[in-house]
Design a binder for these strands. Structure first.
Lengths: 213, 213
DNA sequence: ACGTGCGTGTTACTTACGGTAACATCGAGT
DNA sequence: ACTCGATGTTACCGTAAGTAACACGCACGT
């Protein structure tokens, strides 16, 4: 039958694709985002053109790779976000989940945040499209949760999106800096960020001697 | 005299360096961060090896370029941050200054945020060093202002640094998203972000029907 | 006046990588 | 036996980073 034949072939192709992705994963995690297609092909035991047949170009391969990791991380975050607990606890759990993930696998994290490394067909600026897909997806996801659950008055949807992307950016930048310098424990970082979101910046008193920030 | 001779030469070299940087600036702003060294050299009316003599490698040139723009932006931000006004107004002015800058010159912004594009000597992950220098510098700068002016109790310095990087990341991610989708006016974005920093997330009521975020 | 440096500039090359064309092989269905 | 399609190969192209090696010009000490 035509359909079963197609299914077999497709299944085989999918399996192969997964194998190639796993090989690519190993190489990228070992050599960084600048890993060459030759290196990836060698790790998979094949040569370049096969990679290109499966993924089109380097961007395609990297997009497939990023999607896998991004999906996994987003699943964890969703779980933390949906846990049955008070709002503050859930915010802290989500922050901690994200920070644990980047702490446990910094290479994956770096790859996801800087996927556009060796793509020379980069002309035309396209500002707005260049941000790491992970950040955008996390932002939209959080925006949806906020919009669904919080009563923010009129403009609720727009406010939720601004906050979603803003909070994700806060988490990302603070996490990036923390991962590099390790100035405090993860728990302290989580607490400090939650405090920031809880308005301690506005509530803090000026220091003696001048107008506060 | 030896010293005056050296000074003359150095002065001439510095002038040349500035000219080359300006040419590089034009090309990078026109062609994006993927601009080739050949193109930059051609714009400057010379050939590649001279660029390499002045800047070592592409990374050196880009670092010099980024420093120029970063310094300029940081000066603007410092001015907004130091303006004589209430805290909320100053926060809004700073956000607006940043957003105006990235809105006015998106190419510069993209270049500053994604400077590591064609640097194959990228091996070894060095997580923590990879973030855009602009973000780090803005974060440290803001941390310093916060630490100087706000009374945050014990751990003041550390809290200030977390917040500095966190707020900068919030501004960056929200700005990046906003620049791509333009979902609202700049003033609305500024207001929404300031509201977030002012604790409206914690204060918001749950939507009817379930526990809030 | 004459070499001696030294900064400025060039051409021509190497190396590495993304991407592609053309050819070889093997297994399944007619 | 023959075709078709997927899998695989070698060999190549274009481009871009980075590097000799060589050439000019100009101030200097003698």
């Amino acid at each position: 039958m035509d359909t079963t034949q197609r299914t077999d072939q497709q299944r085989s192709a999918d399996r192969r694709r997964r194998e190639l992705l796993e090989a690519a994963d190993r190489v990228v995690l070992r050599d960084g985002p600048g890993a060459s297609m030759n290196a990836i092909a060698a790790e998979a035991g094949i040569t370049k053109p096969i990679l290109y047949r499966h993924f089109g170009d380097k961007g395609g391969l990297y997009a497939a790779l990023a999607t896998r990791h991004t999906d996994a991380l987003l699943d964890s975050l969703r779980a933390a976000l949906d846990a049955p607990a008070e709002r503050r606890e859930r915010v802290e759990a989500t922050l901690d989940t994200y920070l644990s993930a980047i702490e446990a696998r910094p290479q994956v994290y770096r790859f996801l945040m800087h996927p556009a490394e060796g793509t020379p067909g980069d002309q035309g600026f396209d500002v707005g499209k260049h941000s790491a897909p992970l950040l955008r997806r996390m932002g939209e996801e959080l925006a949806q949760v906020i919009g669904e659950r919080l009563d923010l008055g009129p403009d609720s949807r727009q406010l939720a999106r601004v906050w979603g992307h803003g909070i994700v950016g806060m988490m990302h930048a603070a996490g990036d800096w923390w991962l590099g310098e390790r100035p405090c424990s993860r728990a302290e970082l989580v607490g400090s960020l939650a405090d920031l979101l809880w308005g301690r910046l506005a509530a803090a008193g000026d220091k003696v001697g001048g107008p506060g920030f």
